[in-house]
Design a protein around this nucleic acid. Structure first.
Lengths: 227, 227
DNA sequence: CGATCGATTGAACGCTCTCAATCGCAGTGG
DNA sequence: CCACTGCGATTGAGAGCGTTCAATCGATCG
């Protein structure tokens, strides 16, 4: 893998979270939480920050990422409405979280979460289940990053996104090409070229750069699974 | 990334676990467990098997891996004495586990583990902590696979292995070059060439192919962190 | 001493990256 | 209404890192 050093490319990150409208109270699913909104590109937590709580995404989407000191970035995961981050037994976040669309989050402080677990012990099992699901996703991602070609990565990505967004054959990409590249361990150019190639092969269509139509899910699945 | 199809290369996998000596009882840390031994190369669980319990490694080492249908393999993690696998809320293992050395494991059935959690609720927190640590390791691994060069991968690997095995500057590699390659998303040849390059640069020494001496941990760390 | 197996080394190829130009669209101002 | 600008995405050409295929080395074992 050739190394790309391009720390300057991400000027999109904006004001810290403190400056955004905050405060509406919310009462799902573990009692009281605080609603927070973030504009596209806005940073929500930074890798290394002390863990302040558990965030659940009410609307919108975010990306989790890790970076090397020289600015190379790996996107760990994209989270959409209903998903969450920040459950951990560690003291610090191991990743940065940024909004990729206008996003509403509900924050539950750690103390409040602990209390809620005392009150309803079955909640602990749910949180454990979320951690296990995250782990399984991360490990699936390891296989993709370590052993799949660009075509296979893109096919896998489109199919899993379609499944998560509701298994329609039309996928609305909420993230930029740069985000896709950093998620798949590719460059933006390779992502673009690969999409064009799949389009020329008749596997997908692109209505707009963000809207992908899956035309041949069978052949895409063959690519994705490493036939 | 070029795709390597080489399903025939791993003839090392041996007899299923059932054929090995079993049965000694063991009483740490969650009550009663069953001690099992496995020879090098022996399969302990297979991706897709129903989860039968939680395994803790008493001695030896294992590898966790996932494979594509055409035989490409990604090693998810190596586990050594004191570490464990099989805690999950899913129904099936998402990975294959094989011994890489003569290994002794303690198996705790799921039912027994559930019972132990009832008896000592603090155990649930420990298991949650293990899952979180596994998740953090997997995510660190994502950054390595997606964004690091071969040199950086090898340097990261050697340093993290040294830290886990007791932070000596002499690292005894318990796994083959093929295992290292499949863990780092490389080929066996690139692993070998990179080790020789680091040796010629004076960063490491190789007493035997399995015994690595870290000569310049400062420069290795520079490589590993992506300076 | 020959066989075997893992590891190393060599040569050439190719997938992805790098660097750079162009496209297309949306917003802005003349 | 149309140039101008800015930005994300696409396309092109060439280079490089890691792979592929193949030969050799070295240690262990019979």
């Amino acid at each position: 893998m050739a190394v790309s050093i391009s720390a300057a490319r991400r000027s999109e990150t904006q004001h810290p979270l403190e400056t955004c409208p905050v405060g509406k109270r919310f009462d799902r699913p573990t009692g009281i939480g605080i609603t927070v909104t973030a504009a596209p590109g806005q940073t929500i937590v930074v890798e290394g920050d002390p863990i302040e709580g558990w965030f659940r995404i009410a609307a919108g989407a975010v990306r989790l990422s890790k970076s090397t000191p020289d600015g190379r970035r790996q996107v760990i995961d994209f989270l959409i409405a209903g998903e969450s981050f920040g459950i951990a037994s560690e003291e610090h976040y191991g990743y940065t979280v940024e909004a990729i669309a206008r996003t509403t989050l509900v924050r539950h402080s750690r103390a409040r979460l602990e209390a809620a677990i005392e009150a309803q012990p079955e909640l602990a099992r749910r949180l454990f289940g979320i951690a296990c699901a995250d782990l399984q996703r991360a490990r699936q991602h390891l296989l993709l990053l370590g052993r799949k070609s660009a075509d296979e990565k893109i096919a896998s990505f489109l199919l899993s996104l379609a499944a998560r967004l509701g298994s329609s054959d039309v996928v609305q990409l909420p993230m930029s090409r740069q985000d896709m590249a950093d998620y798949l361990g590719l460059t933006i150019e390779t992502v673009s070229r690969t999409l064009t190639r799949l389009r020329h092969q008749g596997l997908i269509a692109l209505r707009t750069p963000q809207q992908v139509v899956l035309l041949r899910t069978d052949r895409l699945r063959g690519l994705a699974e490493g036939a």
